[in-house]
């Protein structure tokens, strides 16, 4: 993925994000707030899960271009996945951001963030939505 395409992808998802507008617990969604302790990003993310599958995902809040776009791209990819598939995707994404070995094939548009480690202070921005989704998964396990 070339730099220009990555930039366009990030910008497109920042300016016109997927499913912005939070649906909450009253609509049967699991909601998790995620914020970056070292800066000011603050997002709520919610997933609707039925029969072990994510059937919808929404978010809202105030965050930078990296956090917002990463949330948009990740949530779009999550819809339709089983819990196991979703976990795998999030883990794989986290590995990519943290510069560990990861499966490039499965990343799709999330590859837009593959070089984010070059700006270490932005890694937490890119990881923000992944943290919230992981938390929701943990919550599910407990139920």
């Amino acid at each position: 993925m070339d730099q220009e395409f990555k930039r366009e992808l990030i910008l497109e998802n920042y300016q016109h994000p997927f499913h912005r507008g939070l649906k909450g617990e009253e609509d049967g969604y699991l909601v998790k707030n995620t914020n970056n302790e070292s800066c000011i990003d603050n997002l709520d993310i919610s997933l609707k899960i039925e029969k072990g599958r994510i059937i919808d995902a929404t978010f809202d809040g105030e965050a930078c271009a990296i956090s917002t776009s990463a949330t948009s791209i990740l949530l779009r990819k999550l819809v339709g996945l089983s819990i196991e598939e979703a976990k795998e995707l999030v883990e794989n994404y986290e590995k990519m951001i943290e510069e560990e070995d990861y499966d490039q094939e499965k990343m799709g548009e999330l590859l837009a963030y593959q070089d984010i480690y070059l700006q270490p202070n932005r890694k937490t921005c890119a990881l923000l939505p992944a943290n919230a989704v992981s938390e929701i998964m943990k919550q599910l396990k407990k139920q």
Binding site: C39, I40, D41, E62, A63, C64, A65, T68, R122
Partner: peptide, 8 residues
Amino acid sequence: VFSQDAAI
């Protein structure tokens, strides 16, 4: 523009 993006 989000303020953090402006500062960056």
